[in-house]
Design a protein around this nucleic acid. Structure first.
Lengths: 345, 345
DNA sequence: TTGAAAGCGCTACCAC
DNA sequence: GTGGTAGCGCTTTCAA
């Protein structure tokens, strides 16, 4: 007999074969009531023989909890980045460790449909939201509904919400500081895409703030550029930077997906990294390592953030007050930054 | 017991307020029985007023289907690649389009636990398996259980299973052919990692077959190398290739994650791509574009494969016989290949 | 230590 | 065109 048939066995069948009531089987499984050792064993044997597994839908209905968490991530178009994949992996693994499943949902800022599926139909006990905007309709929606959720990234006024975020502001400032320490005086900031910025994309805005602030504080010259999330965007951006300010010798980027193109554009202009141009920023370690010379950067601890998100969410589900975590990973020195050249080339 | 009273509106409440029976509400929603226009409207109004959404668990229990599909992907350790993320995105979006949700499950080859959660507890109506091995315990398990599933990639003897795969054999042959046409005579093949090969990783083996075959047919010299899935692996691999056979002028790679390192290694050895060394292979478009010069490669249509997987799976769930799709995307000419140098450097 | 039975919220059959 | 109601498979009181 196929394993599949046997798994449509239900608790009644087990009870009959073990000559006990269904409740006893249930309690033997949950341990919520003492069951004599002998019957417990008998039940266990039958369960193994028949390959019984409690039906998740029935259990969810009876218990009022699904043991499933929602992971809301944006539809493509804007490409997925490595970071996002690592979030997904981190979240899923951490959830599995706590005996939760993860239900994926593609939903853009305003997407009502998927919200209704997840929360309205009670498919999940809580949700994690990725790709947060400073003013995010999804977050407001969740807040109103008093549904447990955690954001990866944080809204403009995050008080009372649970979130885990990278401190883009501080990280970008540190990058600027690093370049300043190396003697660079004219910097450029490569941000995420124009569209993302317009939509109020959180990390893009806070990164920009950090850049503006640091440049001002340190008395440097700086210009910021939005950049499409792909190699082509990076090339174009490099060209613009060098056209606008040929004396630029340092670049800070938060746009990992354009990194290859950025390098290509710089090289195409006859400059060598890091001799003529230093580059640093925030990126997934894989991207930072993929380019030559490898990028000195703050590595996004995406996997860890996924884990943290799960922890915070489970706390919320258990009724605890909202907590948050702001991470500031160290800048890893690789090979893409050096002292500023004496003369602007 | 659920803590969220707001959505504890149920069908009975709606029925009472609309002064009809619960069955009528159900039928008004499903359309499986004619309902007079006037009552339909009345019901609709009440539903909107109260923000009623049918509870997914209850519905799943009653209907015997969850409208959820499982996506089984391997735990990290071996890094996730871009390709995998695009699969996930493609699968999730396609599923959403058909009104299905996607439940993520990290499960390695032998992982029983997650199989039981997904299939045993009937959390999903069908499953998609990624990262297939030629002999894959998960696939056998599914096969036995007669549970609807589709693999991305195919096992050694895939007859009777539903799958979508890239024709690595043909694609690698085409790459070899391409290099041969350009006059290259000594080639190297950069495969996935040793560990993956040992585990019988499908695409790695079929790619290798294609390489061996093509090299023989075309009367070329070739050597194959396993390579770790990261930049460091690529560097090491480049070094080995050039040490073993300095006369190598063409490389075929199926290891996108090591691409940056491979380039770096080649460059570090004083060779220029494509003047002294041509590189081609199979990779996600983003990786191919990220390196300089951009990689001439067959772009993995991961998103499309995700969509196809969903189609095939829904067919299976509907009871149709297993189908499969073998894809052979074209090689996109970029900038990393050129005619063989006259003299080996 | 165990059993009986009342739900959980929805669907779909059987009646009218 | 509509209502009543028996399940779906499990959990958890209430009783013994």
């Amino acid at each position: 007999m196929s394993r599949f048939e046997t798994s449509s066995v239900n608790i009644g069948e087990v009870a009959r074969r073990a000559k006990v009531s269904r409740s006893t089987v249930s309690y033997a499984l949950s341990g919520k009531r003492p069951v004599s050792e002998s019957t417990r064993r008998r039940i266990q044997r039958v369960i193994e023989e028949m390959g019984y597994r409690p039906n998740a839908s029935a259990r969810a209905l009876a218990r009022g909890e699904t043991r499933t968490l929602g992971l809301v991530f944006p539809p493509a178009g804007n490409h997925y980045t490595d970071m996002q994949l690592d979030f997904i992996g981190g979240v899923t693994e951490a959830a599995a460790g706590r005996d939760y499943d993860v239900l994926l949902s593609v939903a853009d800022a305003g997407e009502e449909r998927s919200f209704q599926r997840l929360i309205g139909e009670r498919r999940v006990d809580g949700a994690i939201l990725m790709e947060i905007r400073l003013h995010d309709a999804r977050v407001e929606r969740m807040r109103e509904s008093a549904f447990p959720f955690v954001t990866i990234g944080r809204i403009s006024d995050p008080d009372g919400t649970a979130w885990v975020d990278l401190d883009y502001r501080t990280l970008v400032r540190r990058c600027v500081q690093h370049l300043s320490d190396l003697g660079h005086r004219r910097l450029a900031f490569v941000n995420r895409s124009e569209a993302l910025l317009r939509s109020g994309y959180e990390s893009a805005h806070r990164g920009q703030d950090g850049f503006d602030l640091a440049v001002r504080e340190l008395g440097l010259n700086g210009a910021a550029y939005p950049c499409e999330d792909d190699a082509m965007g990076g090339e174009r951006c490099a060209a613009r930077i060098l056209a606008d300010h040929p004396e630029t010798t340092g670049i800070v980027t938060v746009n990992e997906a354009s990194l290859g193109g950025l390098y290509r554009g710089i090289t195409a202009a006859g400059r060598t990294i890091p001799r003529d141009m230093s580059v640093t920023g925030i990126a997934g370690a894989r991207w930072a390592d993929a380019v030559t010379p490898a990028l000195t950067a703050a590595d996004v601890p995406a996997r860890e953030m996924g884990r943290i998100a799960i922890d915070l969410l489970l706390e919320r589900i258990a009724g605890a007050p909202a907590r948050d975590r702001l991470l500031v990973p160290p800048i890893v020195l690789r090979a893409s930054t050096g002292t500023a050249p004496r003369l602007a080339p």
